[in-house]
Amino acid sequence: MITPDYVRHMAAYNAWQNGQMDHAMGGLDEAALRAGRGAFWGSILGTANHVLWADQVWMARFGGGQAPEVVLADSAGIFPGLAAWRAAREDLDRRITRWAAGLGADDLVGTLSWHSGVLGTEVSRPIDVLLVHMFNHQTHHRGQIHAMLSDAGTSAPTTDLFLMPDAGAASRF
């Protein structure tokens, strides 16, 4: 279904998007970042925290680091402020990029099994589908953040994949 080049391209897109989002969030004060805006995870920072939390969970499942000690219900508060979120996000984006760089075609074949705390049961799914899910989940919630940034009166970042710097130079997936 997908190739290692696809995963590397999406890892680069993820890092680019998070950098742009960080820049836009940096133009807001803490009150604006924490203000409830009707999103599922409440605020801009809450939603950004949730995305980071979920990426940590997926990377732990894929063998790329430790899972967070916080449960899903508390994911919106995993990092208390923008500076802590930024440091963790940058570290995780580097980790995702390094992990993706080392993938081979065989790494995308097979099934991943884990215990889902949310479902309270064992789950097994194809690895390639789970990778697509991880990147899709990021995009979904960054879209919510994009809308909340606009609502907060700041310029929301460019999200179009084809506008990513060096997008045309990337290997085709």
Rank of each mutant, 00 (worst) to 15 (best):
M1R: 01
T3R: 02
P4A: 04
Y6M: 01
R8P: 05
N14P: 03
N14K: 04
Q17W: 00
N18C: 03
G19N: 03
Q20I: 00
D22N: 06
M25D: 04
G27P: 01
L28A: 06
D29S: 07
E30I: 06
E30H: 13
A32K: 11
A32E: 11
R34A: 14
A35F: 02
G38S: 08
G38P: 10
W41H: 14
S43Q: 03
I44W: 05
L45I: 09
L45A: 11
L45W: 04
G46K: 13
G46I: 14
A48W: 12
A48V: 11
A48P: 08
H50S: 11
V51F: 08
L52F: 09
A54C: 11
A54S: 15
Q56W: 10
W58G: 10
R61N: 13
R61K: 14
G64M: 07
G64S: 15
A67K: 13
E69A: 15
E69Q: 14
L72V: 11
D74V: 02
A76F: 03
A76S: 15
I78F: 02
F79N: 13
P80I: 00
G81V: 04
G81D: 15
L82I: 09
A83W: 00
A84Q: 13
R86I: 00
A87P: 00
A88E: 12
A88K: 04
E90C: 01
D91V: 02
L92P: 00
L92R: 11
D93H: 05
R94E: 11
R94K: 09
R95L: 05
I96W: 03
R98L: 07
A100F: 04
A101L: 02
A101P: 05
G102V: 03
G104A: 11
D106W: 00
D106P: 02
D107H: 12
D107P: 03
V109G: 02
G110Q: 05
T111C: 04
L112D: 13
S113L: 02
S113N: 02
W114S: 03
V118N: 07
L119D: 13
L119S: 08
L119M: 14
L119P: 01
G120D: 08
G120V: 09
S124M: 07
S124R: 15
S124G: 12
R125V: 09
I127G: 01
H133G: 05
M134K: 12
H137E: 05
Q138P: 04
H140C: 10
R142S: 04
R142V: 08
G143L: 10
Q144V: 06
I145A: 06
A147V: 14
M148D: 07
L149C: 10
S150K: 15
S150I: 11
A152R: 12
G153W: 13
T154F: 08
T154D: 04
T154P: 07
T154G: 06
S155Y: 00
A156P: 15
T159N: 06
F162V: 15
L163I: 06
D166P: 01
A167E: 09
A167V: 05
